[in-house]
Amino acid sequence: MTIRAPYATPTHRGVTYPGARIPSKGILRARAMAYFVLMFVLLALLPFAVVVSVVALGYVTLAVPPDVILGVGTLQALLEGMTVSAKPNPSYGPTVMLASLVALGYLAIFLTSSAVTVSVGTSSGPLVLRVLYTPVILILMVAPALRFLSGLVTTLEDHWHPGERLPSDYPA
């Protein structure tokens, strides 16, 4: 009978890191899938459902179509899941950078047309309310920008000192 260890050998590019306890690929994939599902709900399904129900009211116009929100949200969730599975590998930093860039692009779509328009007919005439939220998008863009820098530093670290971070990322 063969018992598979839940954790992989703490090596990286032939270098052994005795202080690291890297989860097996199976565990990493399971974590990535769970994270993807969570992110898919938070970044794609939930915003899509909210936008569709708001647009269905008939008097609210959004600058970004619901399909774009679902598509980009799904891509973002996929990349977030990939960052989890890629964490022990050198591809982690670039994956984080890519996920951050997609998040920035996602927000940039809203930035270029950051407005919600509500048009309601009243007994005395039309009422039009337009809400602009450009500063909100700019504030939200700070987080992925910082995360992009974090991914860049990790990429550089993995390039200059391969596997150096593994013992601290996966302490034994």
Partner: peptide, 27 residues
Amino acid sequence: MRSPPLRRLSRALLVLSTLVLVAALIF
């Protein structure tokens, strides 16, 4: 064991990013 400097920097940026996002959402 103390983390390598680059790791500490990248983690600090990640933590800061999370804090900014949480603060923005609370705001």
